[in-house]
Write a protein that binds this DNA or RNA. Structure first.
Lengths: 206, 206
DNA sequence: TTGACAAACGGAGGGCGCCTCCGTATAGAT
DNA sequence: ATCTATACGGAGGCGCCCTCCGTTTGTCAA
C-alpha cells in the first residue's frame, strides 16, 4: 500500500498540477494590471490553457479570486518567516510592512476583488486574518524579545492598523503616504520605552 | 426675451424629462432587489423605454449609479428638513438615523455599487458628504439649542459613526444590531450632561 | 515497452449583456 | 398645418460567461 493519506482521492495528474499553477500565476498577473473585472478568457489565454481547463480548476470567478488571494497570503507568511531569520528584527518588520504596501500598490484590481471575496467566504477571512497575524507576531516577538520593540502592541492591533491604511487606498500620493505611515509606526514601536538606536535610512520605495 | 439663464442649452423636452425620471425610478428598484450587477437592459425594460434612451441619459453604468445615489442623498436631505420641523428634536434625529438604516437594508446591491462609485468621482463623495453632514447638523442643532442634546459631538463625527455601521453590513442580525447602535448613540447624545427625559419607546423596526 | 483507461484538456457554441447607430416619431415653435 | 431639432426605439455586432463533449495524455500494470 502506498504511504499516502488514508482516504484522499486517487492522485493528481502531473499536467493538472502544472496547469493549476499556470492559471494561478496568470490570474495574478491579469487581475493585477487590468481591473479585477478582467475576463476569464484573458486569464486562460495568458496561462496558455483552454477556457474549459480554467473552469475545471476554478468553477467560479470567486473561486479563482479566492485561490489567488490565499496564494498571496501564504507568500506574505513565507516572507515573514524569511525576514524573521534575517539580521535586524526592526528592519525585518519594516521590510515586511513595506512588502504589504507594494503588494497592494501593484494590484489595482485586487483591492476591489478582495472586497468582493470578503463579502463571501468568511472562512477565508478568518484564515487570512490568522495567517497574517501569525506572520506579524513572528516578526514582532523577536524584536520584543531582543528588547528593541515595545511589548504593549499586539500583532492583531498592528494588522488592523495596516488594513486601515489599505482600505483608504486612493491614487497618486497614496503609496508615499503609506510608507510614511509605516515608518512612523515602526519608529513608534521602538519608543518611547526604548531609545531609538537606528532610524530608517531610505524611504522604502524601490 | 425669455427670463431664462444667459447661456444654457435651448430647453429640455417634456418627454425627455419624463423618461429620465422613469429610468431613475426603475434603476433604484432594479438595483435594489437584484444585486448591483443587474443588467441595464433590465432597467430599461422596467422603465418601459428603449435601451437607447437609457444610454442617452446615462452614458455609462456609473453615471446611472451616480444619479441614483445623488437622488437618494437628496431624499435623505429632504427628510431631514421635514423632521427638523417636527415636534421632538431627539426623536427626529433618531427617526432620521433609522431611515438611513432602512434605506441601506432595503438595497442589498446598493452598498457594493456605492463602493464602486466611491472609487470614481470624488466630486460625488464630497457632495454627498456635505449634504448628509448638513442634514445631520440640521437635526442636531435643534436638539442642542433646545438643551436636549449634548453639544460636543459634531455632525461630521456622527456621520462617520453612521458610515462605520453601514460598512460592516453583513446579513442576518445586521439590521437589528444597527438599530441598537443608533439607540445607544442617541441615548448617549442625550448625554451625561443631560438627564434623559425620554427614552425610545419602540425598537424602531417597521 | 506496450496497451488500456481514467483523468484532464481544449474550444466550439448557445446565451446574454453591453453599447452604437440610424431610421422613425414627436414636442414645441411659427 | 407645417417644420425641424430633439428624442426615441431596438436591431445588430461584439465580447464574455459557462457548458458540453470529442480528443489527448499521463499513469500504471502487465
Amino acid at each position: 500500500m502506498k504511504a499516502k493519506s488514508v482516504k484522499t482521492r486517487p492522485k493528481p495528474r502531473a499536467d493538472s498540477i502544472r496547469n493549476r499553477e499556470r492559471l494561478l500565476l496568470a490570474a495574478t498577473k491579469v487581475f493585477s494590471e487590468d481591473t479585477g473585472q478582467a475576463s476569464l478568457d484573458a486569464v486562460a489565454r495568458e496561462a496558455g490553457v483552454g477556457i474549459g481547463t480554467l473552469y475545471r480548476h476554478f468553477p467560479t470567478r470567486e473561486a479563482l479570486f479566492e485561490a489567488v488571494y490565499r496564494h498571496e497570503v501564504d507568500q506574505l507568511f513565507a516572507l515573514a518567516e524569511t525576514l524573521s531569520r534575517s539580521a535586524d528584527p526592526v528592519e525585518g518588520l519594516r521590510e515586511w510592512l513595506y512588502a504589504n504596501i507594494r503588494l497592494v500598490a501593484a494590484k489595482k484590481g485586487m483591492v476591489e476583488a478582495l472586497q468582493l471575496v470578503a463579502h463571501g467566504s468568511s472562512e477565508l477571512k478568518t484564515y487570512s486574518f490568522q495567517r497574517l497575524t501569525a506572520a506579524i507576531a513572528m516578526l514582532l516577538d523577536r524584536g520584543v524579545a531582543a528588547g528593541l520593540l515595545r511589548s504593549d502592541v499586539s500583532a492583531e492591533e498592528l494588522l488592523r492598523a495596516l488594513v486601515g491604511v489599505f482600505y483608504s487606498q486612493g491614487g497618486k500620493g497614496w503609496q508615499a503616504g503609506a510608507f510614511r505611515l509605516v515608518n512612523v509606526f515602526v519608529d513608534g514601536l521602538c519608543g518611547p520605552t526604548r531609545t531609538r538606536t537606528q532610524r530608517r535610512k531610505s524611504p522604502g520605495q524601490r
